[in-house]
Design a protein around this nucleic acid. Structure first.
Lengths: 242, 242
DNA sequence: CGGGTCATTGAGTCAGCTCAAGGCTCGTGG
DNA sequence: CCACGAGCCTTGAGCTGACTCAATGACCCG
């Protein structure tokens, strides 16, 4: 018999059984409270690459946890230009942008096949008034989002192209590490053009700098497969993104 | 007898009597709930120009509402460079950055003499579990902060120096308007070098572009006094900052 | 009146952009 | 099973917007 847990996109994993529980929404909750949270979470079928999880303008109903795969959030400016506002890896929460205006200001798109946990916000909000730890945890997630955006603002305002790319690599590295994966050897889920867009650069510049890092031995690079040979040297460039 | 209400930095104004109530934390609250909120707010003496409200690294105890004056928040990068992460005008909330790690990651500094309402977070949090509207309002404030940072990220990633400055002028204009002040005629509370820092430019570029806007008749400029002569033309530049 | 801070203006440089030309890879259909 | 096309990536050459460096001007405060 097939053990359904072996599929990373399984729709059946409960929160208390999810290997991401230690970095996702349930941190700090009692087992009993995790159970309550678990009951309001909706687990859909796996989402294919390049599908939308929500569109800008959609009514804000839910926030979403990435369970597997990877997601980018994008904002379309008035003049029709796309700006990527974040990359999200398993255990991270998306969709909070809709809270202020009650409709999403970003769109979220999967970068690869992903599993997504949908958490209806009205029920989360209601549950939060009864579980103070959950309210605190949700405040924390939003605050962390603010902190990581401020880091990006600093990067875009002050740092060179090399520093921006080093920061992105280190950010993905440390987030992989906190998910129990390798900090030095990983695959980039996003394209060069996504990286360029996110970091305020052109695709040519991104490509040139990857080549430069590779030739200098700082990293080993084969398409999207990255090995960080000298993470310390990368770190001496910029402040890592959160 | 002196009417204490006439002083914009008065320490005595209650929330239900504050002319900022319509744009500050209490929005959407019942009068009774405003009273409860009012009781946890600490109103200190006016803060002089260039004083710190909190320092990066301070234990996170409170969030703060700007009642009068203006504040900048700054982040010091590892290499000792200062990045301004936001400008805050009356009715706006600062200090949320400390929530995730329980200590502030930014410092907040007044740009001019200001009055600040301190709101102890533990009591706000506790009150939020009893007043769902307050919890919702606080989620909203954080979400709005996220949205406005994303706007800045887009600006820094995609827009030219002229567009960045136009966006900042329009942002201050619209925030003045929502406080019942003139949208077209106002004083900038921050220096050229603060503007440059915030927008990821140099002070020389900021100065040159102000001069250019002035010579083209787009704005009238006398030091920090700005008159927007053709707000529409400015708007055709970029997306305004939130 | 002198010194410090802030702002303006000019001249020259350069990091990253634009434009242009291929190369690689993978999926599709003959 | 291979040829072809589309998408993605790399590399080169030249341009330019914003930066750096430098000097001067305007204002404030003691």
């Amino acid at each position: 018999m097939l053990n359904i847990q072996t599929c990373p996109h399984s729709t059946e994993t409960r929160c208390d059984d999810c290997r991401l529980a230690g970095i996702c929404l349930p941190i700090g909750l009692q087992l009993e409270d995790i159970g309550k949270l678990d009951q309001i979470i909706q687990r859909g079928r796996p989402v294919q690459k390049k599908e939308y999880i929500y569109h800008a303008g959609d009514k804000f109903k839910s926030v979403y946890a990435v369970r597997s795969g990877a997601v980018k959030t994008i904002k379309i400016t008035e003049d029709g230009i796309e700006q990527i506002t974040g990359f999200y890896l398993p255990g991270e929460i998306i969709g909070i942008d809709g809270l202020a205006t009650n409709s999403h200001i970003n769109s979220a798109i999967t970068l690869e096949t992903s599993a997504i946990c949908e958490i209806p916000f009205s029920r989360l909000e209601e549950l939060s008034t009864r579980i103070p730890h959950l309210q605190r945890r949700f405040f924390q997630i939003m605050s962390k989002e603010i902190a990581s955006e401020q880091q990006l603002i600093t990067l875009l305002g002050k740092n060179s192209a090399e520093e921006r790319i080093a920061a992105l690599l280190l950010s993905i590295s440390s987030r992989n590490q906190s998910r129990g994966l390798s900090a030095k050897d990983f695959y980039l889920p996003m394209s060069r053009s996504d990286i360029a867009n996110f970091l305020g650069l052109t695709i040519e510049t991104v490509s040139r700098i990857f080549t430069r890092f590779h030739k200098s031995g700082l990293i080993t690079l084969d398409k999207k497969h990255i090995v960080l040979n000298h993470a310390d040297a990368l770190r001496s460039f910029p402040q890592p993104l959160a």
